[in-house]
Design a protein around this nucleic acid. Structure first.
Ligand SMILES: NC(=O)c1ccc[n+]([C@@H]2O[C@H](COP(=O)([O-])OP(=O)(O)OC[C@H]3O[C@@H](n4cnc5c(N)ncnc54)[C@H](O)[C@@H]3O)[C@@H](O)[C@H]2O)c1
Ligand SMILES: NC(=O)c1ccc[n+]([C@@H]2O[C@H](COP(=O)([O-])OP(=O)(O)OC[C@H]3O[C@@H](n4cnc5c(N)ncnc54)[C@H](O)[C@@H]3O)[C@@H](O)[C@H]2O)c1
Lengths: 255, 255
DNA sequence: TCAACTTTGTGCATCCGTTCACAAGGGGCT
DNA sequence: AGCCCCTTGTGAACGGATGCACAAAGTTGA
C-alpha cells in the first residue's frame, strides 16, 4: 500500500536482472523457504551477491539484516516494479513457424502477458486457428490493436516486412516492440524496441569458438583470479545479460 | 605480408556488433556500392559512426581516408574475425515447437551454421523427420556429437531438463551453447554460454511500459541533446535496413 | 541484558563502453 | 603540383556497471 517506493529510475542493467531474481524467487518459494539471503538469491540467479543487494536497494525494498529478504514481499515488490501486477495485452504479427511457436508458448501467459491477437498477410493463414486465437489479416491490425488498447507488439515476419509492420503497430498505439526479424528497425522516441536475433547469438559464439582453437597469439588475458565468494564452484554461470548485448564472460572469469 | 591482424582481444561489446556490421555490409553490397563510410555503415547498422570506426579499428582493418571502407574487404575481414569462414556444425536438443522452428530456420545456414543433428527424449518424436534431419534419441547424443565433432549446441528443452542436457552436450565435446530454456545454467570454464529468454525480454518491455504511464516523477529520461553529425539518428535505437547512404525511406519521425 | 553472529546497504575504486573532437592521411579536381 | 575536402583512427573525457570491504542493524541464545 503505497509503499512509496523511490521510483528514481532504476539502472538498465538492474532492470534486466529483475526478471531473473523473480524466477529465482519462485524457485526459492517452491523449495518452501520463507526468506532468502542475497547469497542464496545470487546462487539461484547466477550473479554476484553484492550485485543482488545493490539491485534490490534500488527498489527501496528492505531486506532484514541478519535474516535476508522475505520471499513473498520481495516477489511482490519486483513484480510491482516491473509492472507485472496488471496484465499486458500483446499483438503478434507474422504467424509463421516462429510466430506459431511463440503464440503457443505458455511462458508468456505465466507472467501476465496475454497474446490477444495474431496477424498475418498470407491469405491462407488468415482464418486459421493458432491455439485459441484466429489469425486475422494484417489489414485489421489498426482497428483491433487500437480497440483493445494493446501496448506490446511482437514482430515475427520476414525482415523485409518488419519496418512496415513496425510502423503500423506504432500507428495503432503500440509503444513497446519485440522484434525477431533480423534487421534494424527505426522507431520514434517514446517507443521501446528490443530485438532477439538468433543468428547474431550464434555468430558471437562462433567468435569465441574460433578463438579457442587459435593459439591465441598475442592475447594476453591475465589469469584473473577472482574469489568466488559463495557462488558455485568451478562452473561459471554465464548469464548473458540482456541489455544491449551483454555477453558471457571470456575465458578467464565470469562477467 | 599476410595481413597480420592484431588479434589483441576484441572487446565484448564490439564482438556483439560485428554481426550487425556484417549484415549492414551485405545490404550495402546489394545496393551496388563498392565502398562505404563509417557514417554509412553506422546508419545501416543503427549505431554511432564513431563506434563503428573504433570497432573496426580493433580488427586492424584499414579503411581508406577520404573514401571509407572497401565493402568486400571489410566483409571478409569481419567474417574471418568471427570465425565464419569455416562452417560450424550445430546440435539441437528438444524438438518441440521452438526446436522445430529453429531447425527449419534458413537464417542459420546462411551464415555457415549447419544443424547437423537434432535430439529429443520423447519416443514419439524420435524417428520423425524435421526438414532433412531425423530426430534421434537423446541417448545417442554422446556418440553422434562426438563423432561429428560438433562444437555448438542449442538447448530447446523444458527448463527442468536443460542442465542435464547441457552437461551431456559438454561431455560430448560441445564448447558453445545457446540456451532457450528459461533457467540458469552452469557450465565449466572454457565453455561459452549464451541465453535467449523471451519472457525476460517482455518483462523488460513491461518495466518501461509501466513507467511510461506513471507520472514519471524524478525519472530523468534526460533530453539527451546531441548533434547528429550526419546520421539520421534522433531515433531511439534503431536501425534497419536500409539503403546505403541516407535517404532512407522510413518516415522520418524526428523527435 | 548482552555478546556473538548473520546479513544488509553502500562508499569507493575500478573497469568497460560510449562519444566527442581533432589531427593526420589520402583522393581527386583544377 | 597543389589545394581542398572528406574520412579515418584515436586520445581523452565521461558515465554507467561491477564488485569489494566494512559499518550498521537486527537476530539469536544464554
Ligand atoms: N524460425 C526461426 O527459428 C527463426 C529464428 C530466428 C529468426 N527468425 C526470424 O523470424 C521471422 C519469422 O521467421 P519464420 O521462420 O517464422 O518465417 P516464416 O516464413 O515461417 O513466417 C513468416 C510469416 O510472416 C508472414 N508475413 C510476411 N509478410 C507479412 C506482413 N507484411 N504482414 C504480416 N505477416 C507477414 C508470412 O505470411 C509468414 O506467415 C523471420 O524474420 C526470421 O528471420 C526465425
Ligand atoms: N515456444 C516458444 O516460443 C518458446 C519461447 C521462449 C522460450 N521457450 C522455451 O524453449 C523451450 C522449448 O519450448 P517449446 O515450446 O518448444 O516446448 P515443447 O514442450 O514444445 O518442446 C520441448 C521438447 O523437449 C523435449 N524434451 C524434454 N525433455 C528432454 C530431454 N531431457 N532431452 C531431450 N529432449 C527433451 C520434449 O520431448 C519436447 O519435444 C522451453 O524451455 C521453453 O520455455 C519456448
Amino acid at each position: 500500500m503505497s509503499t512509496l517506493e523511490p521510483v528514481t529510475s532504476i539502472p538498465q542493467a538492474t532492470v534486466a536482472r529483475l526478471p531473473l531474481y523473480l524466477r529465482a524467487l519462485h524457485q526459492v518459494a517452491e523449495a518452501g523457504n520463507p526468506t532468502v539471503s542475497s547469497a542464496g538469491l545470487a546462487a539461484a540467479a547466477g550473479v554476484n551477491p553484492a550485485k543482488v543487494r545493490k539491485d534490490l536497494s534500488y527498489l527501496g525494498s528492505y531486506g532484514m539484516r541478519g535474516i535476508g529478504y522475505d520471499v513473498a514481499t520481495l516477489t511482490q515488490q519486483i513484480s510491482a516494479s516491473l509492472g507485472l501486477e496488471r496484465g499486458w495485452g500483446v499483438a503478434l504479427v507474422g504467424v509463421g513457424r516462429l510466430g506459431q511457436a511463440l503464440t503457443n508458448y505458455a511462458g508468456f501467459a505465466n507472467r501476465g502477458f496475454a497474446i490477444k491477437a495474431v496477424f498475418d498477410s498470407a491469405t491462407d493463414q488468415v482464418g486459421t486457428k493458432v491455439g485459441p486465437l484466429t489469425v486475422q489479416h494484417v489489414n485489421e491490425l489498426p482497428q483491433v490493436v487500437a480497440a483493445q488498447k494493446i501496448a506490446i507488439g511482437i514482430i515475427a515476419t520476414p525482415a523485409e516486412a518488419a519496418q512496415d509492420v513496425c510502423d503500423q503497430l506504432i500507428a495503432a498505439g503500440v509503444t513497446s516492440i519485440l522484434n525477431f526479424a533480423p534487421c534494424v528497425l527505426f522507431v520514434p522516441k517514446g517507443v521501446d524496441l528490443r530485438k532477439v536475433d538468433l543468428a547474431i547469438e550464434l555468430q558471437i559464439l562462433s567468435y569465441h569458438e574460433h578463438h579457442k582453437t587459435l593459439p591465441d597469439r598475442g592475447t594476453r588475458l591475465a589469469p584473473r583470479r577472482r574469489r568466488g565468494s559463495s557462488v558455485p564452484s568451478r562452473r561459471t554461470r554465464a548469464i548473458s545479460g540482456a541489455l544491449p548485448t551483454r555477453t558471457t564472460r571470456t575465458k578467464a572469469v565470469d562477467e
